[in-house]
Design a binder for these strands. Structure first.
Lengths: 151, 151
DNA sequence: CTAATTTATATCGTTCACGATGCAAAAGTA
DNA sequence: TACTTTTGCATCGTGAACGATATAAATTAG
C-alpha cells in the first residue's frame, strides 16, 4: 500500500497529541475547583519551586514563548494569584511573584499529582509503565528543541 | 521534602504536553508550504483513509469534540480542501468529502511521515525507541477516554 | 558619547480546544 | 398521532499557543 504511512493508526505524533489533550482533561476535576487551567498550574509549579522570576525564566522553564506566557500571567494577576513588578536592575524585566493566595494554593494542590496517578491506575495502565516513557520523552523533547533552532 | 511531587521535573504530564507541542512544531516545515495546520492534516489523514464521512465520525476518530471539528472543517472548506454536503438519509448530518485539491494533496504529503522520522533521528533519539512508547500511549489514551465518561 | 543592535516584554491576529447553549431532524414513547 | 427525548451539528465565549510586529531599555560598536 503506497500510503500506508499516512494512516492515523501508524502515527506516534497523533498519539502524543491525543494523550497530551486527554491528560490535560484529566486535571480538570482537580484544577476547576481551584479556578486554575493546566498551563496556569504549570506556572504555579515553577513559582512554587522558586518565587520572584522574570517572565523569560518562566517561559524558558515551560518551553513556551513569552507571548504565550505574558497573557497567561496577566490573567493570573487578575485572578489574584501573582503580581508583576518592574525589575530593579533591569527595568525591562517584569518580576513575577506569588501573592498570598498563590502561596496558599500550594497546600490545596499538594495532592493533585497522586490523585492523577490514582486515576491513571484505575483505568488500566500502570504508573510504572508510563514513567518508563520519561527518558524517551526527554530525549525527544531535547531533540525537538534543537530542531527549532536549526532551520 | 513535602512538595517534592509538585516539582516540574517529576511530572510525566508536563513532558507529554511539551513533547506534543514541539512535535506539532516539527511539522511546520512540511505543512506550511501546503497551507495546512497540524489538526487540518489530521483531518486529511482521516479522509484519505475513507472519503465522505459525517462530522461526527471524523471527530470520533480524532478524539475531538464536534465543536472543535466544525470550525476546522469550515476553514478547510474555505481553503478548498473539502466540501460539506447535507446527508441524504439523515439530513442533520453533514457529509465531508475531499475536493480535487484535497485528494491531490495526498501525493504532496506522502513523504511527511518519513521526513519527520528523519528529523527525529537527526537530533538524538531513535525512532525505534519512540515507537516503543506506542503501546503505553495507547493504554493511557484508552484509560483516559474512560475517565472522561465516568464522573 | 551617539548610533546601531540586542534583549525583555507586550500587542495583535489566527487557529485550535472545549464547555455551554441553541436548533432542527430523527427516534422513541404514550 | 402528538409529545418527549436524543442526536448531529452549529454558535458563542474563554483560554491557550504562536508568528509577526511593536516598544522601550540595555548593550555594543564606532
Amino acid at each position: 500500500m503506497e500510503y500506508e504511512q499516512l494512516k492515523l493508526e501508524n502515527q506516534v505524533c497523533f498519539r502524543l497529541y491525543t494523550a497530551a489533550r486527554l491528560t490535560m482533561g484529566a486535571y480538570h476535576p482537580y484544577l476547576d475547583p481551584l479556578g486554575l487551567t493546566y498551563p496556569q498550574y504549570l506556572v504555579l509549579l515553577v513559582l512554587w519551586e522558586q518565587d520572584k522570576q522574570p517572565v523569560n525564566d518562566i517561559a524558558h522553564k515551560l518551553l513556551l514563548e513569552t507571548n504565550t506566557v505574558t497573557p497567561l500571567l496577566q490573567r493570573m494577576e487578575k485572578a489574584g494569584l501573582v503580581k508583576r513588578t518592574k525589575g530593579k536592575e533591569d527595568s525591562r524585566q517584569r518580576i513575577v511573584s506569588l501573592t498570598k493566595k498563590g502561596i496558599e494554593m500550594r497546600e490545596q494542590a499538594k495532592h493533585i499529582p497522586e490523585c492523577l496517578s490514582a486515576d491513571i491506575i484505575k483505568n488500566e495502565g500502570s504508573v510504572e509503565e508510563i514513567s518508563q516513557m520519561i527518558p524517551t520523552l526527554d530525549k525527544l523533547i531535547e531533540g525537538l528543541k534543537q530542531t527549532e533552532k536549526n532551520p
